[in-house]
């Protein structure tokens, strides 16, 4: 195990005895196994669910079944509209609020900011009962807007953008003002471009959150026209529906595929985003 050329490498890297390597790999295999198993079940005929035969025939029939038994195309569209809408709306609303908190002398600013931070703990899904009533009062039940709107003013987004805006030197703002920029132009030409990494991090975290969100969308939707993928999958694969398992695993893979592929392609960005968004 001694690698003299690497011993000069920086980092707290320890010399790993093979016992640790084995344990690390064993844990990795256990951790990835459920997903590998879902792939196995989805690409083989139902008879091979628990028969592991290397030469088992591959098939796409489970996907065809899933696709024809539930309106997945519609669910994809709904999830896509939901995620795009939520993220764009969050960007606008949180940018304005973050900018206000970072640069404007609003009376009672600190108290207001603490009030905003409360939403880090009290999520829309905890308040499903009352939020359902409010959504229904606003005529938003069973609409994609109704799924997304409670999440638009995200305390988390406001917090992240405020912190980022605060680190931007005032000199840049003053320079823009000398060139005759108003507040909106300063926001769009100075602050927003310099906060790009924050937008990327927050955007990725928000996309994965809303792609995967379930409880509130389940409560607020009741038709195919507005259901996102998670709710569609939940309805489709509820054990009492008796859909065969190979089809359920194909449906499961269908619903996670886009996000999973994006993650595998941009692992670094995803992990960095979760980190940036988490450590504050």
């Amino acid at each position: 195990m001694s690698l003299p050329t690497l011993s000069a490498a920086r980092g707290v890297a320890l010399r790993v005895p093979s016992l640790e390597t084995t344990a690390a790999w064993l844990l990795a295999v256990i951790w990835i196994f459920p997903l590998v198993y879902a792939v196995w079940a989805a690409f083989h005929p139902p008879a091979f669910m628990v028969r592991f035969d290397l030469f088992a025939p591959l098939t796409l029939e489970n996907f065809a079944n899933a696709w024809s038994q539930a309106p997945f195309a519609r669910y994809y569209l709904n999830t896509f509209l939901l995620v795009t809408g939520v993220v764009l709306a969050q960007f606008v609303v949180c940018t304005l609020a973050g900018f206000a908190f970072a640069r404007f002398p609003i009376p009672g600013r600190d108290i207001l900011f603490m009030l905003v931070l409360i939403q880090l703990f009290v999520f829309p899904e905890v308040l499903i009962v009352e939020n359902y009533r409010i959504a229904s009062g606003l005529g938003l039940v069973d609409t994609i807007t109704g799924i997304g709107l409670p999440y638009v003013a995200s305390a988390f987004g406001i917090f992240l953008l405020r912190q980022t805006f605060k680190t931007i030197p005032r000199e840049l703002e003053d320079a823009a003002r000398v060139e005759g920029c108003g507040w909106m132009a300063i926001l769009l030409k100075v602050y927003v471009p310099l906060a790009k990494p924050t937008y990327l991090a927050y955007g990725l975290v928000s996309i994965s959150h809303h792609w995967n969100n379930f409880l509130w969308p389940l409560v607020v939707t009741n038709s195919v026209e507005s259901r996102p993928l998670t709710v569609g999958l939940g309805v489709f694969s509820a054990p009492e529906t008796g859909v065969n398992w190979a089809t359920v695993s194909a449906a499961t893979l269908l619903s996670i595929a886009p996000l999973l592929v994006a993650f595998l392609l941009f692992q670094r960005q995803f992990v960095q985003s979760f980190l940036r968004a988490g450590i504050r």
Partner: peptide, 12 residues
């Protein structure tokens, strides 16, 4: 392998 479950919806 360790991180992948994080990216899946709880339903899946």
């Amino acid at each position: 392998a360790y991180f992948t479950p994080t990216i899946l919806p709880m339903i899946a």
